[in-house]
Design a protein around this nucleic acid. Structure first.
Lengths: 242, 242
DNA sequence: CGTCACCTTGACTGTAATCAAACATGGTGG
DNA sequence: CCACCATGTTTGATTACAGTCAAGGTGACG
């Protein structure tokens, strides 16, 4: 699956500090679905996405999956403070990354490399903040709130484009939000019926948001109950009207 | 609520580095239920528990609560890389802490303080690991698996005592696991019926674990379904026999 | 044009939530 | 010392949100 394209050096500048020296970044390419690294493998490299997108996740023995984060162009992932990766990373679509060796932060010579550990701290602190917010979402929010939060997050990370193109499928969204694909699909349909979003073209991954304000309100707190039978939008409309 | 006991200096040794200088730690005491710091408040201090226990949590506007972590004697909490606390912290029971000013890690003079930022990194990395594991639990595990995982975690953190005394009530456990108190209580009852644990004395917070191995297996992966009506342990027994 | 992957929708089920009541515990003050 | 009350836990009955099972649609690609 892994398709190595070339080995030219790339000076990213902003990331040189992370590895403590003028870095030689290599260009790698992964095909859709390819594993970039596996959970519990030695954490040798850090990655920065040039194009494409990546999911990082954990698995239970029976295959249940929890996606911890999506990584988009410009994002750095695979930064660990320990010896091993704590997630598996896979390319969601064909993806190109810059890759570089990460010096062990807790190694004997770590003290020499102050700026590096500062950068690592920043990155890890950002991951922590994201994870902590996600705890609240997974533990205490409804399916509608979860999907609304997901759309709001993606909208912001993609810089609120006129048409948001989601790289990931319903399965990935479901595993990110702790739901099933059917529930995700139903919530999308409800949001479409309520004119909060619409689908552009025929692919259902291209989305136009019609009311970011409503969406953000739903993401944070909604009294909304999904209607599975009976009139389809009585409770829904009530919830959305908040 | 806050009850300041004294202001004597305490040299903890292991934590001096964290604040970058020989530290003057103050002793503070909080009564049961007292707020130690609030979410979004400026993060001025770090705390180390001398006795008692603390919960850190986030709230939704309607009061839904997600507890991110429990902190026990010896634990350090309140370490932030940013300007503000990202959780609220409350004393679960009457609690005594050591408190110290945390130098801003990302301040202008941060470079001078290499060991401190290394310590902060360690602490934050540990928090991140805990949070990431908790994502999988909240998003993809059943009520039984959640409670089993909670008991296993507490057992380990309390060093597997003969009788485990839980400082927190069912409400806290529920808000940690993304469940209700009733569901937590029902799962405890099932585990008692299955002779995996029993309650010591009359308080139902003192627990004896009879099979840590079974519990650990349940925590990671169980086919078990709760039986709410009908014969009480048919499916249960099947699940537990794995 | 047929197959495959992905998405949606419908019918029904089940796990955990909600609503409700009983019981235990522990502290307080009479 | 005990009655009383607030708090916390268990248990039962029922509900509901999301899951499961199943079918059908659509687009991509060979």
């Amino acid at each position: 699956m892994l398709d190595r394209v070339n080995f030219q050096t790339n000076k990213t500048g902003e990331l040189d500090l992370l590895i403590g020296e003028r870095a030689f970044w290599s260009d790698f390419r992964y095909l859709r679905g390819a594993e970039i690294f596996g959970e519990a493998e030695p954490a040798e490299y850090v990655y920065k996405i040039r194009s494409g997108s990546v999911r990082t996740f954990k698995l239970l023995p029976d295959g249940r999956r929890q996606i911890g984060a999506f990584h988009l162009p410009g994002d750095i992932f695979g930064v660990e403070s320990g010896e091993v990766y704590r997630f598996t990373a896979e390319a969601i679509e064909d993806t190109t990354v810059w890759i570089a060796k990460l010096r062990r932060i807790f190694g004997e010579c770590a003290d020499e490399n102050v700026p590096a550990s500062k950068d690592v701290l920043k990155l890890i602190a950002r991951s922590l903040q994201h994870a902590e917010n996600h705890l609240l979402l997974l533990g205490r929010q409804t399916s509608l709130e979860k999907v609304a939060a997901f759309l709001t997050e993606m909208d912001q990370r993609l810089h609120s484009p006129a048409v948001m193109i989601l790289p990931m499928g319903r399965r990935d969204i479901a595993d990110y939000l702790g739901l099933t694909i059917e529930t995700v699909s139903r919530v999308f349909s409800i949001l479409e019926r309520e004119r909060i979003l619409s689908f552009e073209g025929l692919r259902h991954r291209e989305i136009v948001l019609h009311s970011r304000a409503k969406l953000a309100r739903l993401a944070l707190f909604s009294e909304l109950k999904l209607e599975y039978r009976g009139s389809r939008d009585s409770n829904l409309a009530r919830g959305l009207a908040v």
